[in-house]
């Protein structure tokens, strides 16, 4: 049986291709619910971090104020915020049935995400040189767990979007692939929002 209904001709291309099918709608709703769960996940992480952020074994162990460099964190924030914007462009072109441009903007999103990730890895290496590691203190454990979980989400998100770019290269957009792209972009926005909280709660609060 051919799956005719997935390949909608462009004159009947729906305004919201991602929710045009029952499966697409399921994905959309289900993913929002998943994000609700992710929200409690990060809420628990933030709570743990706040409880432990000043807990170090001795005087000589560095604390947040000794470590954090706001300019770097700001640049990272900019990378991630911009990548969120570019993913919006990708979705915009998806809705206009413009496959090439969608792929292009997704590619740019991935590049910006990679930029963020490299800066984060650089940052972590710096901290480790200062004796602030995952094992050095409860503060260290909580810091790396919170940022590490976020970073892990970034890695997953980058892998996911890259995989979509590759797998869709030959398939183009259909209401089937549109739902997938849209879900990945939702995920990417979520990662961005979490980062905004990290920037505020970890970095701004840390240096104040």
């Amino acid at each position: 049986m051919a799956h005719m209904e997935y390949n909608v001709p462009s004159e009947r291309w729906p305004a919201h291709p991602e929710t045009a099918t029952m499966e697409g709608k399921n994905k959309f709703i289900g993913f929002w619910i998943f994000l609700a769960g992710e929200t409690t996940l990060f809420a628990s992480l933030f709570a743990t971090y706040l409880a432990l952020k000043d807990s170090v074994p001795g005087e000589d162990h560095p604390l947040a104020a000794d470590l954090f460099a706001l300019p770097l964190a700001f640049v990272m924030t900019m990378f991630l915020l911009t990548s969120s914007l570019t993913s919006v462009y990708a979705i915009y072109h998806m809705r206009n049935n413009n496959f090439a441009k969608m792929q292009l903007w997704l590619g740019i999103t991935v590049l910006l995400g990679l930029g963020f990730l490299s800066l984060e890895i650089y940052e972590f290496i710096e901290y480790v040189h200062h004796g602030h590691t995952f094992r050095s203190s409860a503060f260290g454990s909580a810091f790396y767990f919170l940022l590490g979980t976020h970073g892990f989400h970034v890695v997953i998100g980058l892998g996911w979007i890259t995989l979509l770019i590759l797998r869709n290269a030959r398939r183009g957009i259909s209401v089937y692939t549109a739902a997938k792209v849209n879900t990945a972009s939702l995920y990417w926005h979520f990662i961005d929002v979490v980062w905004v909280f990290i920037f505020t709660i970890v970095y701004l609060l840390g240096v104040m």
Binding site: A47, A51, L52, P57, S137, A138
Partner: peptide
């Protein structure tokens, strides 16, 4: 890690 190890600042009530 040391989330619950009191000697390195951990807290078991968490």
């Amino acid at each position: 890690s040391s989330f619950f190890l009191v000697e390195t600042g951990g807290n078991t009530i968490i």
